[in-house]
Design a protein around this nucleic acid. Structure first.
Lengths: 95, 95
DNA sequence: TCAACATATGAGCACATGTTCATATGAAAG
DNA sequence: CTTTCATATGAACATGTGCTCATATGTTGA
């Protein structure tokens, strides 16, 4: 494999994004359907600010994307890697 | 899916273990072959103590296992989930 | 039993991280 | 334009995390 330390560093950064229960829960509610910030906040019972901060991190890691709909920002899962990684994680836990 | 918040918390804990570059590098050298603590330290250019601390975390997360060989402890990758999760992570980064 | 070697562990420190609170930005309706 | 609603952002604080240093534990060979 052609993996150098830089890439391993990026890899750690990626998993770090998954490694927080608030962010995992956000990803999980987005599994079902695309949601705006306030809906996510309500689902998780957390403040809009806390969610917004975490959404920013998720977006930087390219795990979610967003589109504007009037005054709202709609967030959605970026791609299927996210689902696959989480599924594998669940497999590991459930063994 | 039958995933509750407790399980999502565990999931976050799992990814947290992957989310450190020292630990990812340890896993990566163990991809090739089983190694003792000193060999891992040498490979990564880090102290035996630092590596030992991280190996403990990896072992708690069941990402590595260990067996004794005389005075040495040999560490190895626990199972194929570890490889799969890392492979998926690399896919995500390289897209 | 003792010395030598390999690994594990605990305390301490510096730095990273998540939440809150206050406020800024931006879109839309009047 | 101004107000209102939705979201983003920055500073501050408390907590978590990784490394170092010193030392403990445990195994082997003399």
């Amino acid at each position: 494999m052609t993996i150098n330390d830089d890439k391993l560093y990026d890899l750690a950064e990626l998993f770090k994004v998954f490694g927080d229960s608030t962010r995992i829960r956000i990803l999980f509610v987005l599994f079902e359907k695309d949601l705006c910030v306030q809906e996510i906040s309500d689902e998780l019972g957390m403040t809009q600010s806390a969610i917004s901060h975490q959404l920013k991190i998720l977006k930087q890691g390219k795990l979610v994307g967003s589109r504007r709909d009037g005054k709202q920002m709609i967030y959605y899962l970026a791609d299927d890697h996210v689902r696959t990684i989480i599924d594998q994680g669940i497999n590991h836990i459930e063994e």
